[in-house]
Design a protein around this nucleic acid. Structure first.
Lengths: 249, 249
DNA sequence: TGACATTAATTGTCATACAATATTATCATT
DNA sequence: AATGATAATATTGTATGACAATTAATGTCA
């Protein structure tokens, strides 16, 4: 166990949040009372209450007098909250399922986002996108930096689609990702000749998207993005077992 | 002003949350100290702290000793949190922009979700979808009930797509919607011969989706859903001015 | 049996005190 | 005068104790 950091109420919220999302307390169950939790976690009731308030804010629990803190049904959870997302991808298997579903969503959303961006991007935003692409070109030798700027490129496009919901989806998912990364820290991928080559390819595909956007050609931007995502999907060598994620009812 | 309900800390969180999202405190600003808020809102510091904890949980603020509670930059906000979503759609204009963007997202996401559902739905889930369709048929005369079951139909399909991210997106957005509804209460639409007819049409279009799913024809399910959403989009007579939502930087 | 009052467990709120933390001001040193 | 250490100070973080408000469970009476 690593050294715990942050305030006590933060630690308590993390601990209890993980327990709930991890299934140690099931929906419909009552958590121990504030007094009992206070005893168990060896913190004051004040701290326990503030932790529970955080969990309630994320829809995980609801406290009522006399009955105590109850785990809410899953449909009440703020599933896209970055903490909930991170707690949902604690072990390796869950994380891989999440990543798999994430790429699926990206392949659904981003091509259309690119189409919208082609129609709606302001000159300023176009320049922004071009700038992030230039940044990618510069760091083609550094895998980590490249990944970061890759993400920035896609974010800039979604931003230019002028749809806050899409943007929100990206931002939350990204936050959940880095949060779960911090758990799985061990940098994931190492650089090989193949991955280096893959980045060169990726660069060309990104350029195609950028060019289409510049010419305000929505259809071509859409196609280029489809192409890009499919290629990246394969190129990364997504060795997921593609196991079915049993639906959460 | 309606009669305020719920616990004091809940009320305080709502009040402060609305202030922040509404722009009364800007990102980078410091809120009044806990002591000052306690005085202003006329509640104990305990209550203020628990309210602030809720806002911190949603990424709106961050408190540090000696400096106080600071409004976080917007990219740190949990924009898809149902409360944040509701606070973001307080006035009519914001709500209409949100609804417009929501239909846009639906038209992007749901056709592909239908395609996935055609491939992945379990027999049980197919039955579920059929059941919600039957429920729609029964309540074709009641606008409100129809709308509810319409939503259930789409939710069942997304569920059957076996992608938790898509499901999460739908669920959060729906929660935000009902939450903002409670503000804008005044049932939105009234029944006219036209809208009644529109429901008949909608029924047929839904049936087409269902049939395609039953035959596991992903392509047709996709097309049927596109058709459905476009028609609904027009039929509802979406009289939005289609005003540009200025990008939130 | 069923309506109604009582009890008891638990959360909700308040007040107070002090510890921990981080900013700001002060002061000594060069 | 610039710099770095040090102290003062404002604010949040935590603990404790008390009581009010809420509500599930229980018991009582018609």
């Amino acid at each position: 166990m690593g050294v715990r950091v942050g305030t006590l109420s933060h630690q308590a919220a993390q601990e209890l949040g993980r327990r709930i999302v991890g299934g140690k307390y099931l929906p419909g169950d009552a958590l121990p009372s504030e007094a009992d939790l206070s005893a168990e976690l060896e913190v004051s009731r004040t701290v326990v209450r503030e932790a529970l308030k955080v969990l309630a804010a994320k829809g995980l629990i609801h406290s009522r007098p006399r009955v105590g803190p109850m785990v809410q049904p899953r449909h009440a959870w703020e599933r896209l909250d970055s903490d909930v997302l991170a707690w949902s991808t604690q072990d390796d298997k869950q994380l891989r399922v999440f990543l798999s579903q994430l790429t699926e969503v990206r392949r659904i959303v981003e091509p259309d986002a690119a189409r919208l961006a082609a129609m709606r991007a302001t000159p300023d935003e176009l320049e922004q996108i071009a700038a992030t692409f230039a940044a990618m070109e510069e760091t083609v030798t550094d895998p980590n930096a490249f990944m970061t700027r890759d993400l920035a490129f896609h974010e800039a496009i979604i931003r230019a689609s002028h749809n806050d919901l899409l943007l929100g989806l990206l931002l939350t998912v990204r936050k959940g990702l880095v949060a779960s990364r911090q758990v799985t820290t061990g940098t994931l991928r190492q650089d090989t000749p193949e991955t280096a080559h893959a980045r060169e390819i990726a660069l060309q595909l990104h350029r195609a998207v950028l060019d289409a956007l510049r010419e305000r050609d929505g259809q071509r931007a859409h196609e280029a993005m489809v192409h890009l995502l499919s290629t990246v999907h394969e190129a990364i060598g997504f060795m997921l077992d593609h196991e079915r994620s049993d639906a959460t009812r």
